[in-house]
Amino acid sequence: MSAISVRDVWVEFGDQIVIENLNLDIASGSFVSVVGPSGCGKSTFLRMVLGQDRPTRGSMTLDGKPLPDEPGADRGVVFQRYSVFPHLTVLGNVLSGYEFAQSPLLGKLFGAKRRAAIEKAEELIVAVGLGAHRDKYPSALSGGMQQRLAIAQALAKDPKVLLLDEPFGALDPGTRAQMHALLKPLWARLGMTVIMVTHDLKEAFTLGTRVIAFDKTRHDPQAPGRFGARITYDLDLTRDVAVPVLGFEKRAAE
C-alpha cells in the first residue's frame, strides 16, 4: 500500500507563495499525471513528496505516517537529466541500489552476493530493453536509453512511490512513445503509485489514471508572488463516463 495524503500544504519561498492550501489524496497504485504552466509548483510538489523540499505549513503522509523529510528508498525518482551515475556502467548503475542496501561500509558487493545481485539487476536491464548495453557507460547511451536506465535503477529498490519529473521531456516523439509503451505495463505489473510531472498533455492523458492541473487562480499584477498555485482541474480517468474536460465553468477574468 502506498497512499499519499496532503493536508493544507503551503509552500513559500520568502515573500513568494508557490503553492497555497493544497489538499490532495492519492490512492495507492494510481498513476497521477501533474500538468500546469512553468513555475506553478508542479516540480515543487514532486520534490516535497520526494523529501527534497519541505512544505512551509501543512502535513503530508504516506500510508498514514508523516512523510520523511529526506529522500529514501521507499520513493524512487527519475529526473529529466542527470538521473544516472556517469561513472558507472549500465550494470553498475542498477547494481548500486542492491549494493547500498547490503554493504553499508563500502557500498560494493563481492563474490556470491554480487553474483546474486547481478542476476536481479540483469533481469531489470533486460526488462527495460538495455540487455545489449550492459557494459556501456551512460555517455555512450542515447537520451532514451539513459532514461530507460534511470527507470531500471529506480525499480531496483521496488519503491512504493515512483516519482517522474518530466522524464521524457527531452526525448523525440518516437522515443517518447517507446518509453510510454515500456512504462505502462511495468507500472501495471508492479502496482506502485506513480506521480509524473509533465508538460505534454497527451502524455498525461495516455499514461495517467488521474490528471491534476496546477495553476494560479488569482493574480496580483503589483505582487506576482502574492498568490500561489492551486489544483484547478482534477480528472479521474478511470470512470466510465466521459472525461469532463470541457464541462468546467470558465472563471471570469480577474
Binding site: 529514501g72 524512487g76 525518482v77 548500486s96 547500498f100 557500498g107 534511470a150 535503477q153 529498490k157
Partner: peptide, 9 residues
C-alpha cells in the same frame, strides 16, 4: 538525491 532514493547513506 538519486543515491538517497537508492538507499545510500
Amino acid at each position: 538525491v538519486k543515491a538517497q532514493t537508492l538507499g545510500a547513506s
